[in-house]
Design a protein around this nucleic acid. Sequence first.
DNA 1: GTCTATACGAAGATAGAC
DNA 2: GTCTATCTTCGTATAGAC
Lengths: 194, 194
Amino acid sequence: MSSSDTPGPRGPYAKGVQRRQEILDQTLEVIESRGIDGASLRAIGEAIGVSHAALRHYFSSREALLVEVLRQRDQESVRAVEHLPGVFDRLTASANDNVREPALVTLYTTLLGASVESGNETARDFFSARFEQARTDFATLLRDELAASGRHSDADLDQVASLIIAAFDGLQVQWLLDRRIDIAGTLRLLERVL
Amino acid sequence: MSSSDTPGPRGPYAKGVQRRQEILDQTLEVIESRGIDGASLRAIGEAIGVSHAALRHYFSSREALLVEVLRQRDQESVRAVEHLPGVFDRLTASANDNVREPALVTLYTTLLGASVESGNETARDFFSARFEQARTDFATLLRDELAASGRHSDADLDQVASLIIAAFDGLQVQWLLDRRIDIAGTLRLLERVL
DNA sequence: GTCTATACGAAGATAGAC
DNA sequence: GTCTATCTTCGTATAGAC
């Protein structure tokens, strides 16, 4: 990500920050109404009332813009859930939140798929860091949870963390393709691996 | 060269069948050398020595071509593994095969991600059917396996099947982003849910 | 049936004016 | 900070040669 994606070292200028947020919000709205393919820079610009070139004053590429939308909502999503005590309670809550925002799940899935192609370094960096962080966090949480309840598991908790994240992402994709999939219920099965 | 030197109404379009397969093979090779984004119809055509318009004589769209490459390799992959007795032996074998073909895993992941967007009906239909089939197959296999070994599980086997597929796909993505991920080893943890 | 030539419209990126 | 204009590349579509 380049410096044009974040406010400069002299601090954010109020108008610029506001405009930047407006772009992020409108981008998600355009995605909700016209799909991700329909969310071209021209379409987003039109929804705001500026030219597509103006958007690149705030985001270095369309990819960077979409990743930023996801990053912001992702942070909110994490914050909305971190007060819950157990790992699986958090997973269930996240799954239930996401089911109410299919456009966001679609954006997540699409960007994740694109991130493994060369040329999408912005998305790749985002997801690499996100997975790294999530693996560490889950492993730590599981360790604490087991210790607090006096239980013990012979499973590699880093692998369990990996597995939980993989299952979450994979189930979301299956759910997008077939709404009969019960993400939260299926994730509960993972409690048995401990 | 070939019998098409004498153009009789004879052949059942041998040349066409051959050409079609050549397109499928070269498409994967272009993906391997230049990435999926680099595999434009023009680039693929150039690798074969035909115009990009010729490709659309065999495939209705670029998306349909990519899905067809995946479908063919996917069938081979299933066939290479279905002689193995246990579900988790098959999973391990598949994972190990895939690790040797990162370009194929990348194609799979990219198309799966794209399939959830409206406008990619070809990919969506492929993955919807693939998941439906895989869920049924895995559930049946697990049921037979449990019965044959005299064991019993109180888990919903359709959900377990869903979970296995989700974990497989999700771990592959994490592996593409970080090669330290041990797909087969982590999947083995799922034996505990039964 | 097979393929070339050619054109169309949309997309992201970019340069430079204001 | 925002615009217009332009560049390049893409998938797609059509007409017609052989």
